[in-house]
Design a protein around this nucleic acid. Structure first.
Lengths: 132, 132
DNA sequence: CCTATAGTTCCCAAGTATTGAACTACGGAA
DNA sequence: TTCCGTAGTTCAATACTTGGGAACTATAGG
């Protein structure tokens, strides 16, 4: 039996637009603490980050498959755009799209995130990633 | 075997406060379209609404058990406060608490909800859009 | 008491998440 | 070219979560 997903890996990544970006989808994507931390980290690097690098920066070790799933959900919700560069998948937050579709939404979620997490904790997470 | 939940129904309802109200909890609660619609409906009735009445107003028929679960999740996230009045459980949005803890968050989520659903659609809210 | 109404709890089927293993894809070195 | 290392995807198995029917508690009004 041949592998069922032959040639599927280079298929175009789905990036919803317009009405394809739904509030429920965005909130669902953001409701997971890991995904919220990923988005926060991506916002700090407008040039984009790959999966491995983001994982390292948020100071969480998680299997590649889990990370890949989280990125897929973020991408399919419209929160991030991903682009293949060689073996990497570089992602960044779709700030303009989000501002057009739901102005202020992402900003207030991130503001709430900052308010909930004391700065000391965030610095420690950065140091862990720098060390490892 | 006696019913395991004897006398449990009148136990005090849990209403988190302060750090017990988390961003992840709120986003999780709001990420469900039914719960978001419930919150929107409760906001329109500051005096509070019971479960049956809210369900009727959002134009969705759902089993009591499902409704009860949604209300429990909303309550335990900190979004709503519920009070027993006779046989009813009257709930309302904890606007003040939410403003103190995460100012602007609920407002921008509701604004996004209004932006997504045109008023005409909201009047006949029984069908969920199949657009993708 | 009885009956109606409001909501809760339990349970199970159906759905979703997590993650190790197997895999594709690409870049660089030999 | 072929092989290797790295990056990420897909699949499958298992663990967890959710929706809703049935059975239940609680209260109000006869």
């Amino acid at each position: 039996m041949p592998p069922r997903y032959h040639r599927l890996m280079t298929r175009p990544l789905s990036h919803p637009d317009g009405a394809g970006v739904t509030l429920a989808g965005l909130l669902f994507a953001l409701a997971d603490p890991v995904r919220l931390a990923i988005v926060r980290e991506l916002l700090k690097s407008p040039a984009g980050l790959n999966c491995t690098e983001t994982t390292a920066r948020i100071g969480l070790s998680m299997p590649k498959s889990t990370c890949s799933q989280h990125y897929r959900i973020l991408r399919e919700s419209g929160l991030i755009a991903s682009e293949r560069r060689g073996t990497e998948l570089v992602s960044r937050v779709r700030a303009q799209l989000l501002t057009e579709r739901f102005p202020g939404l992402l900003e207030s979620v991130i503001a709430a995130y900052e308010r909930e997490r004391p700065a000391a904790l965030r610095r420690r997470a950065s140091r862990v990633s720098a060390a490892g």
